[in-house]
Computed example of a mutant assay.
Amino acid sequence: MAWTLDASDGDLRILTDVAGPAARMGHRLSILVESWNATVEWNGVEPSAMRLTADVGSLSVEGGAGGVTPLSGPERALARSYALKTLSVQRYPTVLFESSAVTPTDGGYRLTGELEIHGRRREHALDVHVADADDGWALAARTTLRQTDFGVKPYSMFMGSMKVADTLTVTLSAAHEK
Results as ranks from 00 to 15, higher is better:
Met1Asp: 10
Ala2Tyr: 11
Thr4Met: 04
Asp6Arg: 03
Ala7Ser: 15
Gly10Leu: 02
Leu12His: 01
Leu15Phe: 11
Pro21Trp: 08
Ala22Cys: 08
Gly26Tyr: 00
His27Asn: 07
Leu29Cys: 04
Val33Ile: 14
Ser35Glu: 12
Trp36Thr: 03
Ala38Trp: 00
Val40Lys: 00
Glu41Trp: 07
Arg51Thr: 15
Ser60Trp: 11
Gly64Gln: 01
Val68Met: 13
Leu71Trp: 04
Glu75Gln: 15
Ala77Asp: 14
Arg80His: 04
Gln90Phe: 09
Tyr92Ser: 13
Val95Ser: 10
Ser100Pro: 05
Ala101Glu: 09
Val102Glu: 03
Asp106Arg: 14
Gly107Asp: 02
Gly108Ala: 08
Arg110Ser: 11
Thr112Trp: 01
Glu114Tyr: 08
Leu115Arg: 02
Glu116Met: 13
Arg121Ser: 15
Ala131Cys: 09
Ala133Tyr: 01
Trp137Ala: 14
Ala140Arg: 15
Ala141Met: 05
Arg142Pro: 09
Gln147Ile: 10
Gln147Lys: 06
Thr148Val: 08
Lys153Tyr: 09
Phe158Tyr: 12
Gly160Phe: 03
Ala165His: 07
Ala165Ser: 11
Ala165Val: 04
Ala165Met: 01
Val170Trp: 02
Thr171Leu: 05
Thr171Met: 03
Ala174Glu: 00
Ala175Cys: 11
His176Met: 04
